[in-house]
Amino acid sequence: MPEDLWKIRQRKKMSVADLSAKSGVPALSIQEYELGQVAIRAADLPKLAKALYVEEWDIKLLSEPIPTSRPRRPSRPRPSASPPRARKEKGSKKERRPPGPITEGQKVYLDRLLTKLDLSREDFEAKLGRSVESLTQEEAREQLKLLQEQVRERNQRARETQIAHILELGKKLEMDRPALEAEAGKPLTELSRREASRLLRDLQERLTAKQAATPKRKRAHLPEAVDEFEFNYLARQQEEGATLVFTLFDGSVFSGQIVGFSPYSITIREPGGDEVTLQKLAIAYYRRATGQGGE
């Protein structure tokens, strides 16, 4: 026989805060459930049951509210002569007001949530099977909660960057989008962030395993920042006193022995004894003068 949530909680000697901490269900939601304001959400029921060590069917989905007044011991008659104040009959339940129709504020909020979910009022009413106007305040509150949940879920959808990363990893694993969606069990755009991150982790692990299985490709050494080869060549030519012939972009030709050089220029002594500094940007190519051998 299912029992009210609060009854089970009290029997287990737990406070609302304890139950919230143990189940992960927000304390505010538990209070609403216990007050019978809303039915326990399907997602929360197993958490609450687990935290309370009961079966799900042991908990009433819609609790009777916790009685606010406790039976009191009969009090001694007061010495004062004042007439006793009228009291409510003990143990009687507070009479609940009949639920009023949905309020304007609720309607405005409902429309705002529907907009966030790209739903029209008509779509929503069709799903609901009745008009919004026919909802009571309480029913409206329940529907608003459900919509809030959906908005929250939607906001938690996988990021575009996550989807792009999934597709990228898929490509490396030779999996196209349909294959990835089959793996995920739903379209990639409908994945939550958590699902997307789980899928990413899984794909990443598979890729790592695949890469470990394939022999490593030897990466070419591309010394873009190294200028030692030309430096070494020039140093050797200078040491040997070789005569070099320089051809410039404008077609002019200079020849001479190297006096010095930097990354940007080369200074030579021409056969006549003149020193000329050639900017490397002006040089097209150079070589040892014919008949001098060398490399």
Binding site: F249, K280, L281, I283, A284, Y285, Y286, R287, T290
Partner: peptide, 10 residues
């Protein structure tokens, strides 16, 4: 077989 040093920008 002569070595010619060609500047990359050329």
């Amino acid at each position: 077989g002569e070595i010619i040093v060609v500047q990359r920008h050329a």
